[in-house]
Design a protein around this nucleic acid. Sequence first.
DNA 1: AAACTCACTCGCACAGTGTGCGAGTTTTGT
DNA 2: ACAAAACTCGCACACTGTGCGAGTGAGTTT
Lengths: 233, 233
Amino acid sequence: MTGKTFSSVWLREPRKPTSPGRSREEIVRAAVELLNEEGLDGLSMRKLGAKLGAGATSLYWYVANKDELLELVYDEVWGEMRVPDADEVGWREAASVLAHSMRRVILDHPWAADLIGRLPALGPNALHVANEMRKMFKQAGFTGLDTDYAIATLTGFIFGMTIPEVAWNSTSGHEQVDLGEMRSLLLQVARRFPHMREGFELAEMEDPRVVRAVAFDFGLVSVLDGLERRLAT
Amino acid sequence: MTGKTFSSVWLREPRKPTSPGRSREEIVRAAVELLNEEGLDGLSMRKLGAKLGAGATSLYWYVANKDELLELVYDEVWGEMRVPDADEVGWREAASVLAHSMRRVILDHPWAADLIGRLPALGPNALHVANEMRKMFKQAGFTGLDTDYAIATLTGFIFGMTIPEVAWNSTSGHEQVDLGEMRSLLLQVARRFPHMREGFELAEMEDPRVVRAVAFDFGLVSVLDGLERRLAT
DNA sequence: AAACTCACTCGCACAGTGTGCGAGTTTTGT
DNA sequence: ACAAAACTCGCACACTGTGCGAGTGAGTTT
């Protein structure tokens, strides 16, 4: 374990000098664009500099290092998540809309999936979402730490459902894999793991994207039901 | 989108030549060791070669590229997950033990958290776990695709709960952050996001590790309750 | 007007990365 | 003994993040 000292953009002076109205947001915006186009590996300081018509190392005036830049872009995706007001639509509806929104955002920004396991979500946008979720679950009737447990449970489910989906999408983007070979491999697998066979047969009649969406909905009502049951005690 | 052709170690000839009983497993084992010691960034082909007393590029005889090596080590962690027999202990108990086992394995191999979002779990160990889970949920009473949805829901919850926990651990390993500064920042946050305040106050009286473990249990019973409810319809 | 300060830019260099290539070495098969 | 196959590895290439220190240009002070 490298004795790394914990540091985060968010745990520092509220602002850098940033006197000219110019650049940090611009950098983050360009970085997000680059990430959307080329993925996490496609983001390098040199490319980002070039995209902004700047030298590679100029960016280091606005950002301490690449990790800090990643913290900033990570919070940016939290900013895209929509949390409806539970007072207006009820907590279950609010939670459901939020869940689909979070899933959508991650699928649209696959690189964010990698960041979830690397950075804690401490930025203002993430805190805003957390705050709204807390309000939502309190409105549902949760109290004390149970409220936070409910938040963790729901976001956990959403992330855990979506992150592997990203992994799957990244490989099967336009699959070059021989379909016949794939099929025969599946058969071979089915022999060694007999319980999987039925699942394979059922799943291959549907569009995988649809299957995953249905699975998400199935899981979501389960989780919400489970949370609702906690309220009864 | 780079038109990457999908390829996986698992979708290829069942075996490389591998005539001498010697090396591929050994490489994977050493890689896992290196990963446990130094994390995902600490694994480089050169270091791995050195650890094995071999030249850096010698490994490429046994492994097509680094990604393939990662697929192999990824499946290795699936091999550490324990799935009890649902016929003996009942599906709820089996699911619960499995969940805690998966959480433990990921916390013990934090680098695996990054791989979940990058690679689909297609290795033999992963398939074995999936197979056992399918058996477990069928024993519970699920049928058809619902069985697969239940699997996705449970593993989704487990991963989604644990992956951010890994992120948090990686920063707060031995936190060098000024506690007073942290405190004052939290107060500032609490002003902007009032609903968070109660959560902060409650949480800071407990050991964060314990809080997260409790949250996991809370979420787990919720998810299992929710799944059980699906059986009623 | 001259001097100074300070926000900002960026080229160079260093240590490190994955990996293709092709020339070597060892082991195996006949 | 000879050939073929299995295996090793040094070199080179293009790339990475980033510390350093010299440069630029606008604004402020004297």
